[in-house]
């Protein structure tokens, strides 16, 4: 009996240590708050107020700071990732929504949707160093891991703009399917994956030629075509699997990143928008805007293991090891 209790005690200690190991941050667009979640215990730890209409969220490469776009405050706020205290603000242009960080962590590229601009921020000096004119309603933005390219996807112009990091100038444009939403480079920087919300497609662009080399239609049997609205897209580091959030279809598509074939769909919460890996890439987290929760996907088995209620309109998500 005693041993049994000891066993329980040890397990509890073991678990409470793993609890410390990983935290997931979720911006809540309608609650003006940040949810802090323990993904292993499957618990919402706490919710803190952070500013009006928080959307995009990024963790600095050293895991020390969180950058959060509080869209209706027209600013990007910096929070200490340990204490959750606001430590500063960055200029952002109007209505910041999505942004991307360079690999070094000292440049932030922000989409200003209403002004058709990408704003470049020098983080250490907290200054705006460039504004790049792009197409109508820029949204998706990504920096290649070799720090050569910034790409901006404009939703109404239907283009991917290729911005040279060295000059902050557009050097090429690729016409893509209507209403491109999100884009991400593969870790080897050979491919750029882009989702089209209207055409319901995932497009694979070759970074060298900057042309579309493959289009994957994300049709789901039994789900009407207008519900197939792909948004967030991520690819694992080994380029084994890619994942696409399909909005109102309430599913995440699993793509074989080697063959570029559609593998299967995983049912998650309602209106799934953004995706984030755990640091070890063993789990994938999804924000489900309408069911007000996040889903956790076990990537070894490609199974949805848990959903955790977080608050109203979960939008952006990052994981801190």
């Amino acid at each position: 009996m005693k041993q049994w209790f000891l066993g329980i005690g040890l397990i509890t200690v073991f678990f409470s240590q793993t609890v410390q190991a990983e935290i997931v941050f979720v911006t809540l667009e309608k609650d003006n708050a940040l949810a802090i979640v323990d993904p292993i215990a499957g618990k919402l730890l706490k919710t803190i107020d952070i500013g009006q209409r928080p959307r995009g969220i990024i963790l600095s490469p050293d895991y020390k700071y969180l950058y959060i776009a509080t869209s209706d405050d027209d600013t990007v706020k910096i929070f200490d990732a340990e204490t959750f205290v606001e430590v500063g603000q960055l200029p952002s242009g109007e209505d910041p929504e999505t942004f991307a960080l360079n690999p070094k962590g000292d440049r932030l590229y922000i989409s200003n949707e209403d002004d058709n601009l990408v704003t470049v921020i020098d983080i250490p000096n907290k200054t705006e160093i460039a504004q790049i004119k792009v197409g109508v309603e820029p949204e998706g933005i990504a920096v290649s891991t070799d720090n050569k390219w910034v790409i901006s996807a404009s939703e109404t112009t239907n283009m991917i703009h290729w911005i040279d990091v060295a000059t902050n100038k557009i050097v090429d444009n690729t016409l893509v399917d209507p209403r491109p939403r999100a884009a991400n480079f593969t870790a080897d920087n050979e491919q750029l994956w882009v989702t089209s919300e209207i055409a319901g497609t995932l497009m694979i662009l070759d970074v060298k030629t900057r042309q579309i080399t493959k289009k994957i239609r994300l049709d789901i049997p039994g789900v009407s075509a207008d519900k197939i609205q792909p948004v967030g897209v991520v690819i694992d580091k080994q380029r084994r699997w890619g994942y696409v959030a399909i909005g109102p279809a309430n599913r995440v598509a699993v793509i074989n990143a080697q063959t570029l074939e559609l593998e299967k769909f995983l049912l998650v919460g309602q209106r799934v928008w953004n995706l984030a890996f755990s640091a070890d890439q063993k789990r994938l987290y999804t924000t489900n805007g309408r069911s007000n929760d996040i889903s956790i996907i076990d990537l070894e088995n490609h199974k949805v293991t848990k959903s955790i209620g977080v608050g109203r309109f979960p939008w952006g998500i990052v994981s801190k090891p």
């Binding site: 004119k133 197409g135 109508v136 109404t156 112009t157 239907n158 283009m159 557009i170 444009n173």
Partner: peptide, 10 residues
Amino acid sequence: VDNNTTGQFT
């Protein structure tokens, strides 16, 4: 205006 924003790239 939207067309011309796109037009600058085409």
